[in-house]
Computed example of a mutant assay.
Amino acid sequence: MSTDFVRAHTRLAPVPFVPELVLYQADEPIELWERTEAAGGEQPPPFWAFAWAGGQALARHLLDEPELVSGRAVLDLATGSGLVAVAAARAGAGTVTANDIDPLSLAAAEANAEANRVALRYVEGDLLAGGFPEADVILAGDVFYSREMAGRVLPFLRRAAGRGALVLVGDPGRAYLPVAGMIHRARYEVPVPESLESVPIRRTSVWQVDGTSR
Rank of each mutant, 00 (worst) to 15 (best):
R35L: 15
R35P: 00
E37I: 00
E37A: 14
E37Q: 13
E37N: 03
E37D: 13
A38P: 01
A38H: 02
A38W: 00
A38C: 01
A38Q: 15
A39H: 12
A39N: 10
G40M: 02
G41Y: 09
G41I: 11
G41N: 12
E42I: 01
E42N: 15
P44Q: 13
P45G: 06
P45Y: 04
P46Q: 13
F47R: 11
F50C: 06
F50G: 07
A51V: 02
A51P: 06
A51D: 11
A51Y: 05
A51R: 02
A51W: 07
G55Y: 11
G55E: 11
G55Q: 07
G55A: 13
Q56L: 07
Q56N: 02
Q56I: 00
A57K: 01
A57E: 08
L58C: 11
L58W: 03
L58I: 03
R60D: 04
H61M: 04
L62R: 01
L62F: 00
L62V: 03
L63R: 05
D64A: 15
D64V: 00
E65F: 00
E65A: 14
P66S: 09
P66Y: 02
E67Q: 08
L68M: 09
L68K: 07
L68S: 01
L68H: 04
L68C: 08
V69L: 08
S70G: 12
S70A: 15
S70M: 05
S70K: 15
S70D: 06
R72N: 06
A73M: 05
V74G: 14
D76V: 00
D76E: 07
D76T: 05
L77V: 09
L77E: 09
L77H: 06
A78S: 14
G80K: 11
G80V: 01
G80P: 13
S81M: 09
G82F: 06
G82D: 12
G82E: 13
L83G: 08
A85E: 14
V86Q: 12
A87K: 02
A87Y: 08
A89N: 11
R90P: 04
A91Q: 03
A91R: 09
G92P: 07
G94F: 09
G94P: 10
T95G: 06
T95F: 10
T95W: 03
T95Y: 00
V96D: 04
T97S: 05
T97Q: 05
A98I: 00
N99R: 03
D100I: 08
I101A: 14
I101Y: 10
D102E: 12
P103R: 12
L104R: 15
L104W: 07
S105I: 00
S105A: 15
S105H: 05
L106F: 02
A107P: 03
